[in-house]
Design a binder for these strands. Structure first.
Lengths: 146, 146
DNA sequence: CTTGAAGCTATAGTTGCTAGAGACATTAGG
DNA sequence: CCTAATGTCTCTAGCAACTATAGCTTCAAG
């Protein structure tokens, strides 16, 4: 049995994050030691690794919740799991397309900046006037900041 | 002079968002009508368009705050503005690289899914075991969900 | 046996908004 | 001119997915 710290080290997840996952019901309530400390076995370890990996692949906690409950029913069809993964793929492709456009625009901006005064700065100028942009990167839903 | 709704329509920004920007000091406090409603002129419009455009390009509000204060000092060097834009470019490239790896991995997952039972589902299996992955998409800081 | 690390709970903060409640302002139609 | 429908006001709370802090208790090593 592992303490929460060992489990966190093993799975590459921070301790408060594990407690958070338990709190929102993504991990079951852990066993406790005589001194009220959480103790984890192999199953909890696997479940946490699953969550971690899915998070690394950009799945939301909601999607992970669904995937976990699917993986608890091994004899069901995997169509639902497949659909979740495909939706995630579509989402990733959408973000990729958007980021590619942003990259092009940012490159244009910094390349054109001659390094003079703010008054002539291409960066500031372009930001103030979208019509100076080559691509239409407008309106698409918010690009989140990490 | 525009009311907040007209300004929002003109700039493509929702009304509560404008009030939020004012609240956090990104927009100056607006003039008020006799009936206490916010009124905006051309300058506010331009400033909001600048913010909107920078947000579209993925700049954080903090970065935008800096860019705005730079643009208020037209005779200064634009090195700082350039640095912010370059940092944003680097960040976008980093995310792009990461998303590209995720896309590859997700594609592998869904292609390999034979559409049978959960017990044999490649999606579930891969999520449970990172060593089944082709690329190392681990540890990099959280990919945020929009 | 003591000390320091690791654990516990509970609460609040982060980013960039969005949603709701309940009250006042403005405007279009009849 | 009155009413109804919008629009706007303030304030508070909520979203994701954690992270940080405070003030404890417990555990393991020396």
């Amino acid at each position: 049995m592992l303490t929460i710290g060992k489990l966190g080290d093993a799975a590459g997840v921070k301790v408060p994050t594990i407690r958070y996952y338990e709190q929102i019901g993504l991990l079951p309530e852990a066993e406790r030691s005589s001194g009220n400390q959480r103790l984890y076995g192999r199953k909890a370890m696997e479940r946490l690794a699953f969550i971690r990996h899915a998070r690394d692949l950009g799945f939301t906690l909601e999607a992970i919740r669904d995937l976990l409950s699917l993986s608890d029913r091994p004899d069901q069809s995997c169509a639902a799991a497949d659909a979740i993964a495909r939706a995630q793929l579509v989402e990733v492709e959408r973000r990729l397309a958007r980021l590619t456009a942003l990259k092009a625009e940012l490159e244009r901006m910094v390349v054109q900046c001659a390094g003079g005064k703010i008054a002539d700065c291409r960066v500031i100028e372009v930001l103030g006037d979208h019509s100076l942009c080559a691509t239409d990167h407008r309106h698409p839903e918010t690009e989140p900041t990490p």
